[in-house]
Amino acid sequence: MKKVILTVDDSRTIREMLRTALSEAGMDVLQAEDGVHGLEVLQSSMPHVIVTDINMPRLDGFGFIEAVRSNDQYRAIPILVLTTESMDEKKDRARRAGATGWIVKPFDPVKLVSAINRVAA
């Protein structure tokens, strides 16, 4: 079965790059532009994995992860955060909020796919 990935990022550029990399790997992609939008999309779909940025307007990555983890329906969905190398502190914070794993920006499509494979069958 094709994996469905929800990508949450306020940058159009990054959304497009994620879409390209993931479709080429044979996955279906849903998109949201910030945490609030991401929660809306979740109301009508159940992705296999969520890939989210941290810095976003309205609801940032941390808040979004916490919201997902506090919802019984979605708490078991693996969430990967997009982080920049230098921000270890962010990675920790994301993990504490409930992130499953992380992907470093700028992302390598191969690493992205392998990270997804590590969190979802």
């Binding site: 945490g35 609030v36 941390f62 808040g63 409930g98």
Partner: peptide, 20 residues
């Protein structure tokens, strides 16, 4: 668990943001 076990409805944006 890292998250609150009690089921919560999809939270209002303002509620969650205050955690940040």
């Amino acid at each position: 668990p890292a998250a609150a076990p009690a089921p919560a409805p999809v939270v209002e944006a303002s509620n969650v943001v205050q955690l940040a």
